[in-house]
């Protein structure tokens, strides 16, 4: 009886100590943790430039790299950069983002140019409110944008054109697929190709009788082209979409080995095609350079160092082919 009581007592004591420990632990947790809403400590944030970066191709690897370049420069210069992205099809949202940026009175806007009259209107409105606009990758030369930063699309066309000419050894047919309504930068590319191939009279440029395909269907366009010219063995996609359409159509019709495919731009899909040898060559840009260059220029303009800016700042391009 006595022993039992003693054991009970000991057990209870151990339990008491354990619960006391737990109690003090939780007391500590409750008392020591002070969750607080975070407040901004710096008061002179008015000095920081706010730059809005607006692109119309959310989630694409190309634009992500551009953003990286922008962010890098922004971090180095302690500039607040905001990214506003819409999907390619959402022209309305894209324009609205620019309007918003104007309403927010940002210090500068970096935007992918469009040749839309509405876009030009909005850019001009921004200029009227004293907000500088820089277009990147694609231009809107008719607007009052401060400058254009990006590849020279005509130059791109020329390079690939010369490459194709050397590959075709001076004679043959080259089919061009737009894959998109022929906006100005695509036309520039085409002109570049044309300019390069002008020296080779034996090379014939083939195209679908254009105005017919103002939609985004590269598959249809390629099929049409090949139907029209079944002996066309070389194909050039002016955009990524065009290239992937070409590859799919040729896969469906005959062997890929019989065709050589050329492309513009670079994305993981095209890189894989190059690696497999499906696509012979493509023109690659340096998106990070575009981002950093445009931001640097914007900052220099805001600081009044470069005033006025040149009309265009071209970034480097390169030919990528399988070694």
């Amino acid at each position: 009886m006595k022993k039992k009581t003693r054991i009970m007592f000991a057990l209870l004591s151990i339990g008491g100590v354990a619960t006391l420990l737990m109690t003090s632990y939780f007391t500590f947790r409750v008392v020591s943790v002070h969750p607080n809403i975070s407040y901004y400590s710096k008061q002179n944030e008015k000095d920081i430039y706010r730059i809005m970066f607006i692109s119309a191709d959310s989630g694409s690897p190309f634009w992500n790299q551009v953003k990286e370049g922008v962010q890098k420069v922004a971090n180095e210069n302690k500039v607040a950069i905001e990214f506003q992205e819409t999907f390619q099809s959402d022209i309305f949202g894209y324009l609205k983002n620019i309007e918003k940026a104007i309403a927010s009175r940002v210090d500068g806007i970096i935007v992918q140019g469009k040749e839309d009259p509405e876009f030009i209107d909005i850019v001009n409105k921004a200029l009227k409110k004293g907000i500088p606009v820089i277009t990147v990758f694609t231009d809107a030369p008719d607007s009052l944008r401060k400058t254009y930063v990006g590849p020279n699309h005509f130059q791109e066309g020329k390079i690939i054109g010369e490459h194709i000419a050397s590959q075709l050894k001076g004679e043959g047919k080259i089919g061009i697929v737009f894959g998109r309504p022929p906006v100005s930068y695509l036309s520039l590319r085409r002109q570049g190709v044309e300019y390069a191939l002008a020296q080779y009279p034996n090379i014939k440029i083939l195209e679908v009788s254009s105005n017919q395909y103002v939609n985004n269907d590269s598959l249809k366009e390629t099929t049409e082209l090949l139907n029209e010219y079944p002996d066309c063995r070389a194909l050039l996609g002016l955009t990524e979409e065009a290239t992937s359409g070409i590859v799919q159509v040729i896969k469906g019709r005959s062997s890929l080995q019989n065709h050589s495919i050329y492309s513009f731009d670079q994305n993981p899909e095209i890189s894989a095609f190059i690696e497999k040898g499906v696509v012979s060559a493509t023109i690659g840009q340096f998106p990070e350079e575009i981002g950093s260059k445009s931001t640097t220029l914007m900052l220099r303009w805001l600081a009044g160092i470069d005033y006025p800016l040149e009309q265009n700042y071209y970034t480097k391009v390169r030919l990528i082919s399988k070694r």
Partner: peptide, 13 residues
């Protein structure tokens, strides 16, 4: 703070 500044400026606009 950037969004807030935007917000502030929008109200001003």
């Amino acid at each position: 703070f950037i969004t807030l500044m935007n917000f502030d400026n929008m109200i001003k606009s």
